[in-house]
Amino acid sequence: MPSPSSIEDREAHWVEWATGCVSALLVLSMIGFIFFEAVTDGHKPPDLGIVITSRNPVAGGYRVTFDIANRSTATAAGVVVRGEILNGGNPLETTDVTFDYVPAESKSTGVILFSQDPGDRGIRIRATAYTDP
């Protein structure tokens, strides 16, 4: 059923052209950005780095907060992070936490809860495993 005067038939208002041009520019620049990413993507595996941001005793244990950053352009899934209290190089207590995803070039935050205060013993937190999404 062609309607006698659809909105497309009318003389275009200049606002319509302005909106259209800005939109075209936005879409094209987005395509350009992604195209650049596609071309420069080196297919590097996920590169995970962990930084402890805070550690403090809590009721019934000890809390260590950390950031896990992925510097690569590939996302890691099911990332297992293991926290250990070290006693002269040997783990005294071990706790695991799993991140569903650590997205490419992004950062996630996690917490490990130990049952004891490590005191002046060392703490080691490292990623032990991940899968491809």
Partner: peptide
């Protein structure tokens, strides 16, 4: 014309 005036703004 219609692509620029309607579809592209719609996508944005």
């Amino acid at each position: 014309h219609v692509l620029v005036r309607f579809t592209l703004p719609g996508y944005v």
